[in-house]
Simulated scan of single mutants.
Amino acid sequence: MSGYGFGKYSRRGFLAGSAALAGTGALAQTANTTEMEGDISQSIRRNVSSFRQLDWRPYFSNLRNGAVLVDTQSRALHFWSEDESLYKLYPTSVPLTEDLTRRGRTEIVRKVEGPSWRPTPAMKERNPDWPDYIGPGPDNPMGTHALHLSWTYYRIHGTHDTRKIGRQSSNGCIGLYNEHIQELFGYTEVGTQVLLI
């Protein structure tokens, strides 16, 4: 269990705690305010049951440069180090809709600490009031770190809005808690293989 992104907590304890919380409505804080948003327990409850450890072999022929598997159905990211000494499992956010979701093989082509953000042309068309640029910092939707993929506009990145994790909430990218993307940033390298399923 030490390879999990959960620290010292066991899967059984995690599931038991999640089941207990599922019976009580979960509230999320709205960004930059003290307002609380409605019950999000339904989306989280559905995610917990499929959040499980996987073996890399059905997905990759080798672990050269390490491997990242993103399962958009269970909303989980799996990482295996090249020497198999490290396995990590992280909850993620995934794209809002099927047409925004891209699947297949890619790789990390660039790593950025303190990323800036620009909406894609398609995002700007859907949301013309969005800003053209947001620099690094707490208002940046890409969080503290970003792993650029070989597909144009697609990234694995952090988020300052923790309500998004475990939900369909992105415009195409895969989001992680900032502390998790910082950790994954340290484990991966340019050339790390990535598969989205």
Rank of each mutant, 00 (worst) to 15 (best):
N65W: 03
S85V: 02
A146P: 00
L21S: 08
T188A: 09
E125I: 01
H145K: 10
R12A: 13
L100A: 11
V194Q: 12
R46W: 08
L15A: 03
T101P: 00
F79L: 10
I181A: 09
T120G: 03
A76D: 02
Y153L: 07
E189P: 00
S61N: 10
G25T: 07
R167D: 05
G135D: 08
R118F: 02
D132G: 13
W80C: 00
S41M: 07
A122T: 08
I156K: 05
L54W: 01
S41R: 15
G7S: 13
P58M: 14
P95T: 14
L27M: 13
N65L: 00
T120N: 04
R75C: 02
Q29K: 14
R46N: 06
P91S: 13
Q53V: 09
K8D: 15
T33I: 06
S50I: 09
W151G: 03
N47A: 15
Y187D: 12
A67G: 12
L69D: 04
M1H: 11
R155A: 10
T106N: 12
A22F: 07
T106I: 07
L63M: 01
T24S: 07
M123C: 02
L63W: 02
Y9F: 04
H157Q: 12
Q182L: 13
R57S: 08
L100Y: 11
I165H: 06
A122N: 01
R167V: 03
Q168C: 01
L149P: 13
Y9L: 07
S169H: 01
F185Y: 15
L149T: 15
A22I: 02
N171S: 09
G137S: 05
K111V: 04
E179Q: 11
P128A: 10
L21Y: 05
Y4L: 08
D139L: 06
G25E: 10
H148E: 12
E107K: 11
L86M: 04
P91L: 10
L176I: 09
V68K: 11
G114W: 15
K88P: 02
P138H: 15
W117F: 10
